[in-house]
Each structure stands twice: as structure tokens, then as C-alpha cells.
Design a protein around this nucleic acid. Sequence first.
DNA 1: TATAGTGTAATAGTAAAATATAACACTAGG
DNA 2: CCTAGTGTTATATTTTACTATTACACTATA
Lengths: 123, 123
Amino acid sequence: MNFDDKVPIYYQIENHLYHEMIAGTLKPGEKLPSVRQLAVDVTANVNTVQRALSEMIAAGIIESKRGRGNFVTMEVEKIEQLKVKLVTAQLAQVYDQLHALNLSDEEIMTSLQHYIQQRGQSK
Amino acid sequence: MNFDDKVPIYYQIENHLYHEMIAGTLKPGEKLPSVRQLAVDVTANVNTVQRALSEMIAAGIIESKRGRGNFVTMEVEKIEQLKVKLVTAQLAQVYDQLHALNLSDEEIMTSLQHYIQQRGQSK
DNA sequence: TATAGTGTAATAGTAAAATATAACACTAGG
DNA sequence: CCTAGTGTTATATTTTACTATTACACTATA
């Protein structure tokens, strides 16, 4: 896993796992790979991975069973709320940043549209 | 200045100053506040601020005159390139993140539109 | 019962970031 | 020439993040 060196690794691991749950790669009730396996998968230290998982446990997104594993919550609405939260956070950030650069609402919409079209053509 | 504790402070200061140049608050050729004044303004250490400025100097966005001050570059096209770079980085990030959450291109456009409309109504 | 695998935590060391403090070099103006 | 203000750098300390290593507690299975 490629880490951005401007953001703590445990935070990026947490975000990555959230994405897998929202995208459906990790399903409600599903058992996560073990801490040791995840450490190998993402190329980070076991304690760093555990740090990420601890925050997800505290957030109620995963449930930990010592000796058995960590499991994605069965409460689907928690995953849905997480999705809303992440989507809104992203939209807020891009809007605030571009607004601060004096782009109008219309310019923000237009530049995203152009960006998407450009991506489609370069593939 | 409110710092996000997930990102280095010098990096946020750098980004903040870039925004002021692009937004026109800091104009080409204009003298920046002194390092010591900026440290007070943003509530960070002088060395941390100097770290941010050093990167901006290395990037050619500001010019440093020891004993006189730091000045925004007169090369307007550098500011314009910076704007393009920051805007594109923001669009790339929001697109990648939302795409990774399995939103279609259309859904990404629609949700940003909804977000903007919502912001307009809440003000 | 023993073993392998699981989660969790402790200790120690390293690196990066931030701070506090001080000092040096340059500049402009009185 | 002196002073105030400027940028720049050095040193030391603290904090946070990360790693390596080890060990403990729990669980399931043979």
C-alpha cells in the first residue's frame, strides 16, 4: 500500500478499510484479515495496524473478538452513515478549497466535469 | 489558524499562503508578513513557519531577501500554474475518493451539486 | 491437553515534527 | 554609526508516529 507521507499511516489504513466496507469488498459481519496479515498486506507494523483497528472499534464499525478475529459490524446503517460521512467530508473539502481559490459554484461544477471528461479520454 | 492534526503544520501554512496568492489577497511582488509576524498570526513556531517558507522559496513561488523580507514572485504565470496544480489536485482527490466508494461519474457530479445547493440554503 | 492462530499490550529504539531559545548575517533608516 | 527589523540557522527538548521484538490472554481444533 502506498502511503502519503503527510498523513499518519494508521489513519490511511483506517480510511482504506472503511472504503472496502463501503465499496462492499468487506461485507457486514465479515471477518477481517488478522492484524498480522494486514500488517503484511499493507506493509506496516502490527502495532500501527492495531492502532487503526482500535479507532475503528471505538467508532463501532468493527467488533473485536480476542482469539477469534475482528468483524465488520452487522449494522448496515452504520456503514451507510459512514459512507455519508466520508462522501460529505470529501465534498466539503473540495468545495471549501476551491471556494477559497475564488472559484464560483458554477466554475467548481464545470471544472469537476472537465476533469472527469479528461480522465475518461486518457484511458 | 486551526490546524488539522493529521497533516504537518508547515504543510498547512504553505497551503494557506498559496491560497492567499491565488485568491489575490497576496499579490505578485507583494511583501509577505515577516516570519516572526506570521508565527504570531498562525500561532506556530518561527522555525515551523520558516520551514513552510523554505519550501515555497524552493518552489520559486516566493523570493527571499535577507534583511528585507519575502516577496511573492512577479511571475504571474507561476501563480497561475500553482492554481491549476492545486485545483487539479483537489479534483483528483475528491474524484479518486468518491470513485473508490463506487460512486459513478454522474453520482459524483450530482452529489457535489446537491452539496452546493444545500450550502446555499443553509446560509 | 497441546498447538496454532487470534487480538492486545508493553518496552525500547528511531525518526520526524514542533517548540523554545539564542545567535548570526543582512538591510534600511534615523 | 547605531538600532530595529528582517531572514536564517543551530541546539536542545518534547511530542508523536512508527518500528522491532516480545509476551500475554483468548479461542478453536486436533
